[in-house]
């Protein structure tokens, strides 16, 4: 769709967390692997609740996982 302004560092963070698989992250966040795929591709902006659950899965604050606009640095 190409208009999602909420970006994320999920792919990089998974790699930094012992190469966590998409399925493992999905299980921790309580979603399906499809949703993690869509998030990593930038095809979906998660709800606030899901964003917090993903941040908790990485033990990081929300703003270190998600960003608004064109902020690609971690």
């Amino acid at each position: 769709m190409g208009k999602n302004l909420v970006g994320n560092h999920i792919r990089k963070l998974r790699f930094n967390h012992d190469e966590m698989t998409q399925q493992q992250l999905a299980d921790k966040a309580g979603v399906t692997r499809q949703t993690i795929v869509a998030l990593e591709k930038g095809n979906y902006s998660p709800s606030l609740e899901l964003a917090f659950r993903i941040a908790h899965a990485f033990n990081l604050p929300l703003e270190e996982v998600f960003f608004y606009g064109d902020n690609t640095k971690l």
């Binding site: 309580g30 979603v31 399906t32 692997r33 499809q34 949703t35 869509a38 979906y44 998660p46 709800s47 899901l50």
Partner: peptide
């Protein structure tokens, strides 16, 4: 297969 529908679904 996924046993539930999440928010994206």
């Amino acid at each position: 297969e996924p046993s539930f529908a999440d928010e994206l679904d």
